[in-house]
Computed example of a mutant assay.
Amino acid sequence: MTAEREAVEPEVTGPSAAGPSPAGPEVLEPSGDGPEVLEPSGDGPGEDRPGEDAGVGRPSGLRNPVRAVRGLGAGTLVIEMLVLLLAIQPIRLVGGDLSGTAIWTIVALAVVAVLLSGMLARSWAWHAATVLQGLLLLASFLHWSLGVLGVIFALVWAYVLHVRRTILG
């Protein structure tokens, strides 16, 4: 039975042979003979490296805060695009007079929103998305319901910019 246990249990060598760390050993998939056991390096989330203040490198606690903020902005713009496109028919049926100019304006704003959602890695795209919110507010001259959507998404975009400023500094 001991021969079977030796075949099943991984052999621990190196600094971890003296005993497991307080966090416990990390077992990786075998690359040949058997699983290797590695000690935690202290680089994971929630673990401090000796001699460093907690949160100095990443005050937000996110692994990649720039990417997270970009995802928030892109997601907001994609939702705005969906709402704009899905609002065309209810506005036509319930809201009354929606001209062809208003419909093409909605489609154009939706296309711009999608294009900007993919370009948020560039700093100018954030400013362009802010201008997009202003253009949606100006579309209220074509139909009042576009002004309502403009106010809603301008407030949402202001919050996204606040979160961006808070996380990225």
Rank of each mutant, 00 (worst) to 15 (best):
V56R: 13
G51P: 08
L86C: 01
L93K: 14
A54T: 15
R92V: 11
P45I: 03
I79V: 05
V114G: 08
T76A: 02
L62M: 10
I88E: 09
E80H: 08
G95S: 01
A125C: 09
V56C: 01
L132Q: 00
V131N: 04
T76M: 14
L109V: 05
T105A: 13
N64C: 00
P90T: 03
W126E: 10
A125P: 05
A74W: 14
L109E: 01
N64F: 14
V112A: 15
P40D: 02
V94Y: 06
L116W: 01
A87M: 14
L135C: 06
R67Q: 05
T101H: 13
P50W: 03
L120E: 03
D43L: 02
P65Y: 06
G57C: 02
G134H: 07
W124I: 05
A128C: 10
L93F: 08
L116G: 02
W126A: 03
E47P: 02
A125L: 02
L98S: 10
I91P: 00
L132R: 09
L82P: 00
G57L: 14
A129P: 00
I103W: 05
A74N: 10
A113T: 00
Q89S: 12
A129L: 02
G96F: 09
L136T: 05
I106E: 02
G134M: 15
T101E: 15
L136W: 09
A54G: 02
L85M: 09
G100D: 06
D43M: 12
G100H: 01
A68S: 13
R92H: 04
G134N: 15
E52N: 08
L135G: 14
L93N: 07
R63M: 04
G71H: 11
S41Y: 01
L77S: 07
R70D: 08
L116E: 04
L132H: 03
A110M: 00
A102S: 10
R122V: 10
W124N: 07
R122E: 04
S123Y: 02
L135P: 05
A102I: 00
A113G: 01
L82R: 03
P45Q: 11
G100C: 08
L98N: 12
L85Y: 05
P45N: 09
V83S: 09
S41G: 06
S123F: 03
L84W: 10
H127T: 15
L86W: 08
S123E: 07
I91A: 13
T101F: 08
G71N: 11
Q133F: 11
L120M: 11
L77C: 12
L136P: 00
G71Q: 15
R67K: 14
V78L: 13
V131D: 08
G51E: 02
L120I: 12
A68R: 15
A125T: 04
A121W: 13
R92A: 08
W126K: 04
V69F: 02
